[in-house]
């Protein structure tokens, strides 16, 4: 049962990715500015959600891919980041970017708290601890609610709905969509930058063998905690972006089962490839919206979704992104290193 071994494709894929940085910039620009020209407002709203959850999925994938760690609490981390962001927006009236960073840092702090058990556990056990944290968060936030401009430390009052201001440069839905795409791209670049740097090498060593990593002078606890902090930071940023999208948050968005769901979809999308995070987010937000728009009954959509989830987990060990990669290499006959399974 050593299924948690990393598949060997990651490094060459990254190399290819780097060599195409200009192409990537163009791609991000196209993703940020083209859809508003082509799509109705509904789909723009849906795609904003997809962009935000792409960042969350990328943060989950980072932990899984680099350290084999499973977090079933990332939706709760988003909620925590969003809570802090909203609190600052109402309490101090600070600009959106400041709130976003503060939300990210708060969630990073929480991520580091999670990392404490991770130093001693892994696998299903660790996953369940994070699930417990997600469960507790859902209950607590249900009582406290998200700040809406009320007084006191919780910043919540029963009153007419309050609305958090969006960034000054992106107040419209169109602008905000582009903003989310750019922030998500920056977040993924931050992950990439870590992976190709010192941290990435340390993580790779830890993943192979913690004993080997330690003997070669890697500070194992530090790099584990750092991975959690980075992952939490990005989830917190995503949480504030989500708050900016609705201009508020509602406790009902954060049940524990959602955290499990986004992790499952991250695996289905493919944790070994940056495109996987995008696929995961599309499955999480775009597919249900499409089904809803086609008039598929919400309960029937649950059945389709659940069955597809099981199927994908059973048949695609490297996720849909992995399958696409295989397909591409077969179509173009291009063998890039360890891409043969």
């Amino acid at each position: 049962m050593m299924a948690s071994d990393p598949p060997v494709v990651s490094t060459p894929a990254l190399a290819v990715w780097r060599s195409r940085s200009i192409g990537l910039l163009l791609l991000v620009a196209a993703l940020a500015f083209l859809p508003p020209l082509l799509l109705a407002s509904l789909w723009l709203k849906v795609l904003t959600g997809v962009a935000i959850y792409t960042l969350t999925a990328a943060a989950i994938a980072l932990l899984y891919r680099r350290l084999g760690l499973v977090s079933l609490a990332h939706v709760a981390l988003m909620g925590a980041g969003g809570w802090v962001g909203l609190r600052l927006a109402y309490g101090l009236g600070t600009p959106f970017e400041v709130n976003m960073l503060a939300g990210g840092i708060a969630a990073a702090g929480l991520g580091m708290v999670f990392a404490y058990p991770a130093l001693r556990m892994r696998g299903l056990y660790l996953a369940l601890v994070t699930l417990m944290i997600a469960g507790a968060f859902a209950i607590i936030v249900n009582v406290l609610q998200f700040p809406n401009g009320g007084g006191g430390w919780s910043g919540f009052a029963v009153k007419s709905a309050g609305y958090m201001p969006r960034p000054a440069i992106a107040t419209s839905d169109v602008g905000y969509y582009a903003y989310c795409v750019v922030v998500t791209a920056l977040g993924m670049a931050l992950i990439h930058w870590h992976e190709i740097g010192k941290a990435g090498r340390a993580w790779a060593l830890i993943r192979r063998s913690e004993a080997a990593a330690m003997s070669s002078g890697v500070d194992v606890p530090f790099y584990k905690v750092w991975a959690f902090a980075l992952s939490g930071f990005l989830a917190g940023i995503a949480g504030v972006l989500l708050a900016g999208n609705l201009q508020m948050l509602d406790a009902r968005s954060f049940p524990a089962a959602e955290s499990v769901m986004i992790f499952a979809l991250t695996i289905v999308g493919g944790a070994w490839n940056p495109v996987g995070a995008l696929i995961a987010a599309a499955l999480y937000r775009l597919v249900p919206a499409l089904l809803n728009d086609f008039g598929v009954n919400g309960d029937a959509a649950y059945i389709i979704f659940g069955a597809a989830l099981i199927h994908a987990l059973a048949t695609a060990p490297r996720g849909i992104a992995g399958q696409l990669e295989d397909l591409a290499s077969r179509l173009f006959g291009r063998s890039n290193g360890g891409n043969t399974r």
């Binding site: 509904l42 959600g49 999208n245 009902r252 968005s253 919206a289």
Partner: peptide, 8 residues
């Protein structure tokens, strides 16, 4: 779902 509510 608050997000779906905003979408529709």
């Amino acid at each position: 779902n608050p997000e779906v509510a905003a979408q529709v």
